[in-house]
Amino acid sequence: MIAIDENIFLWINGLAGKIPVIDWLFKGIANDYLIIVGSCLVMLALWVWGSDAYQRDKNQKAVICASISLGLAQGFVSTCNAFCFRPRPFTELPTNLLFYQPSDSSFPSNSVAIVFAIAFAMFLANRKVGGFLLLFACLHAFSRVYVGVHYPFDVLVGAAGGMLIAFLVTRIIKALEKWVNIVMSLARKLYLA
């Protein structure tokens, strides 16, 4: 399993360093801020988005789910890191490293877990916006391997963990809809929702 993971890493990372424009593009997409901040800005826009109050209410509940999923995804990664440390690929294999050298555990990918948690929570409520965010989440996951800071298995587990968390949070929020509606109506009274 580890050998397969390493071979896929070597193949994907082997593509780096050949075409400077592609390297530059993936370096930008792989960084810890662009996709995460971009996804959060989409959530911010969605809070006020909707042709009517019903649609907006649906979007706002999706944003709540995505925000909770984001926090829990971070917790999931921290918990995994507490039990298991996997060295970064550039410390073990010949790597075309296009990025700075992170010193924390490679498994699972923190940023990938977060972007997938946000994207999948949005996807469950709004296919168009969620699909768009998932596309960027996939690009981010691929780019983390391309630039040499993660193994494919790290990003796969990060993505799966993020999506599972988003799915569970959405189900729980649905089950607690009565309480969520109380909070939303309070926010509505203050013109914040």
Binding site: K27, G28, D32, Y33, L34, V37, G38, F99, Y100
Partner: peptide
């Protein structure tokens, strides 16, 4: 602003903001 985020690592070679601090700042 997004362009600046895109080029973040070109300006800050080794620079990352730790997760919790990033969340707080955001």
């Amino acid at each position: 602003a997004m362009a600046r985020f895109f080029t973040w690592n070109e300006r800050n070679d080794t620079g990352v903001i730790e997760g919790r601090e990033q969340f707080f700042l955001f």
